[in-house]
Simulated assay, not measured.
Amino acid sequence: MLYADKRALENNLMVSLIEIRQKELDFYTRNCISIGTQAALLSGFAYAGIIQVAIPESCPDLLKAAYLSMTVCTMTVHLIALFNSTMCAMLGPGLALRGPDGSMHKAVDGMMVEYRVCFLFFVSGVVFFHFSAMLFTWTQWAWLIALPVTTVLFLFLYGIYSHFTRIYNKFQLRPGEMIDGRIVSPAEAAAVAGAQLVAPRRAATEAGLVIHESQLQAGRS
């Protein structure tokens, strides 16, 4: 009876630790899905700019090549963001769900890196999209019309940059503030508690969980 109670307590502890990391996995999965949705929309706009735009014959070949190259880059970068985010949203949770012991940590750590890569491609595609629109104006109209439109697009691009930096700086975590759900070894937990000046009660609770999990892993091995 006591052995069964101890095993039940151990299993409940492991499930609780996995549920903490599950929140991180859901967070990164939702981010990847959001990036993929918007990237698909913008890549469709870029594809329409390739096949449906009639460029006048009087337009210089160099300008045509610049516009088409920038539009293709816009579509390709967004497709990369779409493909990467879709793969992460599919394979990351699959690894955590069906992988061996420790797969949840591997999945969360991998999703944390890959979603940032997807976001980088998405932001690059947004910048390319604006440059493609600027080149489009020069292929269609004279400089008296193209110049003010290009100026407006530059202002909008600068506005996106300013809003991005403002929001990013408002919600950015400073070095050492980011907390994840991984339970580290007792020595690492003590070092982190001393470096970050964690509250004594919180440090003792986390250290107790760490020691208990370490004992469980040692017993299974």
Rank of each mutant, 00 (worst) to 15 (best):
S214F: 07
N11M: 07
L197T: 10
I211Q: 13
R201A: 14
K6M: 15
L135W: 05
G159I: 00
L95Y: 05
A46N: 06
F45K: 10
S162M: 12
A193K: 05
V152Q: 07
Q196H: 13
F156M: 06
F129M: 09
L155I: 08
D5C: 05
F164L: 05
V198S: 11
L42R: 07
R116A: 00
E24L: 02
D180N: 13
V126Y: 00
S124I: 12
R21D: 11
I145E: 04
E19H: 09
L216A: 08
T74R: 03
V210S: 15
T76I: 14
M112K: 15
R98V: 12
V192Y: 15
R202S: 10
A65E: 09
Y28Q: 00
W138C: 13
H212A: 14
P100H: 12
L155F: 12
S103W: 02
T165E: 01
T137I: 02
T205I: 07
A142Q: 13
R166D: 09
A133C: 14
T74Q: 03
V123R: 08
N84C: 00
W141S: 09
E188H: 01
S124E: 03
E177I: 06
T137S: 11
I211L: 13
V126L: 05
I80P: 03
I50G: 04
L95G: 08
A81G: 04
K6H: 08
R98F: 14
I211D: 13
L216S: 04
V72M: 09
I35E: 07
M14G: 05
T205C: 02
A89N: 01
Q22K: 15
S185F: 05
W138S: 14
V77D: 06
P56G: 07
S185Q: 01
Q22Y: 09
V123A: 10
L209Y: 08
T150N: 07
L82F: 03
F119N: 12
T205W: 02
Q22H: 11
L135M: 06
K64P: 01
H212Y: 14
G94M: 09
Q217W: 07
V117F: 01
L95I: 14
T76G: 04
E213M: 11
G92Y: 04
T139H: 02
P186M: 04
F83H: 11
S16D: 11
V108Y: 04
V127F: 11
H78E: 01
A81R: 00
G99Q: 09
Q215S: 11
I179G: 01
L25W: 03
